[in-house]
């Protein structure tokens, strides 16, 4: 299974993601510039965290206009897996692949912590290796991770089981404790916590590994998405 990690100017978790795939999942992975206009040949696309374009204007607002975006949207519309983490999640909401938006944290400060998350839906291509309602430890590191969507959108997220991860202690004020969601189709996921930083015991947790093995397993075995 071939992964692409899209690197924007200012991405700073691109290599963390790259190594999670290469060293831990041990699958082929390539760093792809955001100036690339085609994602042909890849089986999954990962949008890493960081401060693309310095987060100037608004997180993800400038990345939205990167040359790779039409190819990314096409890739997502083909039903192939796209995962955006942190700034990647912000970018996915900016381009409209995911509903809602990420606002300043409730207390207006950057927060870097290991946070317990609850797996709300384990019947996805990203979470099938977890147990439902399982608590996992994944670090967060963001200033704008406060997920917001309106009532109608929230109702729709719930109806379609699109809420994948929630925070146990809601550190940033997100609506319904939301830490990660998918699109309706279930192939595009955005999450603020960093699974790629929780892939080895020495880093404090290995709970992020199963997110990547889930993607691989679904690719190989055709897992049903609820």
């Amino acid at each position: 299974m071939k992964f692409a990690v899209i690197s924007f100017p200012g991405s700073n978790c691109d290599y963390d993601m790259y190594y999670a795939i290469k060293d831990i999942l041990k699958e082929p992975v390539e760093m792809v510039s955001c100036d690339t206009e085609s994602l042909d040949g890849f089986d999954a696309v990962l949008i890493p965290g960081g401060f693309s374009y310095g987060d100037y204007l608004r997180s993800g607002a400038i990345a939205k206009f990167a040359k790779v975006m039409p190819a990314l949207i096409k890739f997502a519309n083909l039903g192939k897996p796209v995962l955006g983490v942190c700034n990647g999640f912000q970018i996915l909401t900016e381009v409209g692949l995911l509903p809602g938006s990420l606002q300043n944290n409730r207390d207006m400060q950057f927060i870097s912590e290991y946070e317990p998350l609850i797996v709300q839906n384990n019947k996805t291509i990203f979470t099938n290796e977890y147990e439902k309602a399982e608590s996992i430890m994944i670090p967060i590191a963001h200033g704008e991770g406060n997920y917001y969507c309106n009532e109608t959108e929230l109702e729709s997220l719930k109806q379609n089981h699109q809420i994948i991860f929630t925070y146990e202690n809601n550190p940033n004020g997100s609506v319904s404790n939301i830490a990660g969601i998918t699109n309706k189709n279930g192939n595009v996921m955005g999450m603020m916590p960093h699974p790629e930083r929780a892939v080895e015991k020495i880093l404090g947790s290995e709970d992020g590994v199963r997110l990547f093995t889930s993607i691989l397993k679904s690719f190989k075995g055709g897992i049903l998405v609820e």
Partner: peptide
């Protein structure tokens, strides 16, 4: 907690 202490995924 205001500092990103784990970026680069090497912090033990």
């Amino acid at each position: 907690r205001q500092y990103d202490t784990r970026v680069q995924a090497n912090t033990a």
